[in-house]
């Protein structure tokens, strides 16, 4: 079960600001899902390998040959803020 403190930590890890109201609202729902997930514990998986990729593929490459890039204009076309060809982000600290 997760409490308010856990939720704050997860919210920070996920970078989603949560209001007090959100925390109230989400906690029981998240816990009901986690409770449902406890079903997983019942499965016997001793010695079972995890499946990361459903098809047994390996060694897929591209050759080291340049392809067209976007123009600077295209690259910046969706950026809410930019300056002198750079994308503008908030201050770091």
């Amino acid at each position: 079960m997760i409490g308010k403190k856990d939720l704050e930590h997860i919210g920070w890890l996920a970078r989603i600001e949560l209001s007090d109201e959100d925390k109230e609202k989400y906690t029981p729902k998240l816990n009901s899902v986690l409770d449902y997930f406890s079903e997983l514990d019942k499965a016997e998986t001793e010695g079972v390998e995890p499946t990361y990729h459903v098809l047994p593929m390996s060694n897929v490459f591209r050759e080291d040959v340049p392809t067209a890039s976007l123009s600077q204009e295209e690259a910046l076309s969706n950026a809410p803020k930019n300056q002198h060809g750079f994308i503008k982000a908030p201050r770091m600290m």
Binding site: L40, D41, A43, T45, V48, E49, P50, T51, V54
Partner: peptide, 9 residues
């Protein structure tokens, strides 16, 4: 990890 093992099953 557990979920991925179940995926195998």
């Amino acid at each position: 990890l557990k979920a991925l093992k179940i995926r195998t099953l």
